[in-house]
Simulated assay, not measured.
Amino acid sequence: MNKSELIEKIAADAGISKAEARRALDAFTKAVTESLQEGDQVTLVGFGTFSAKKRSARTGRNPQTGEIIEIAATKVPSFKAGNKLKNLVDDDGHG
């Protein structure tokens, strides 16, 4: 599902226009992004938690030249699914 399809689904399920659904989705993604940038996490009980995790510096390899390179430490966004979401996605319902 891409963003346009998600907007259509939100609009249909919530009984709102696509324009309203787009604004709501954009506001949600902006709020999550800003929270992560500030070092906070966003927890939606039953759905999951968005957070920013630290990735340590490490060595890597340039795939074109094979040269060993140093990769700097960075923060990366992370999502951990909640139990309810895990169970709903589980095919046999026994997650």
Rank of each mutant, 00 (worst) to 15 (best):
S4D: 06
S4V: 08
L6R: 02
I7G: 00
E8L: 09
K9P: 00
K9I: 08
A11P: 06
A11G: 04
A12C: 07
G15Y: 02
I16P: 02
S17A: 11
S17G: 15
K18T: 03
K18D: 00
A19I: 11
E20S: 13
E20H: 11
E20I: 08
A21P: 05
R23Y: 06
A24M: 10
L25G: 04
L25Q: 05
F28Y: 09
F28T: 05
F28R: 01
T29M: 12
T29F: 01
K30L: 06
K30Q: 08
A31E: 05
A31H: 00
E34T: 12
S35Y: 06
S35W: 04
L36Q: 09
E38W: 10
E38Y: 09
G39N: 08
Q41K: 15
V42M: 12
V42R: 06
T43M: 13
L44E: 02
L44R: 01
T49Y: 10
F50Y: 14
S51G: 05
S51L: 05
A52I: 06
A52P: 00
K53C: 05
K54R: 14
A57F: 02
R58M: 01
R58A: 03
T59A: 07
R61A: 13
Q64S: 13
Q64I: 04
Q64A: 14
T65N: 08
T65K: 06
T65I: 06
G66A: 13
I68L: 12
I68G: 06
I68M: 13
I69G: 07
E70H: 15
I71P: 07
A73Y: 09
T74S: 15
K75G: 03
K75H: 10
K75R: 14
K75V: 09
V76I: 11
P77G: 02
F79M: 04
K80Y: 08
K80M: 01
G82M: 02
N83G: 15
N83E: 14
N83H: 14
K84S: 09
K84A: 13
L85F: 15
K86C: 07
K86M: 10
N87S: 15
L88T: 11
L88H: 12
V89R: 01
D90K: 10
D92H: 14
D92A: 12
D92N: 15
D92L: 07
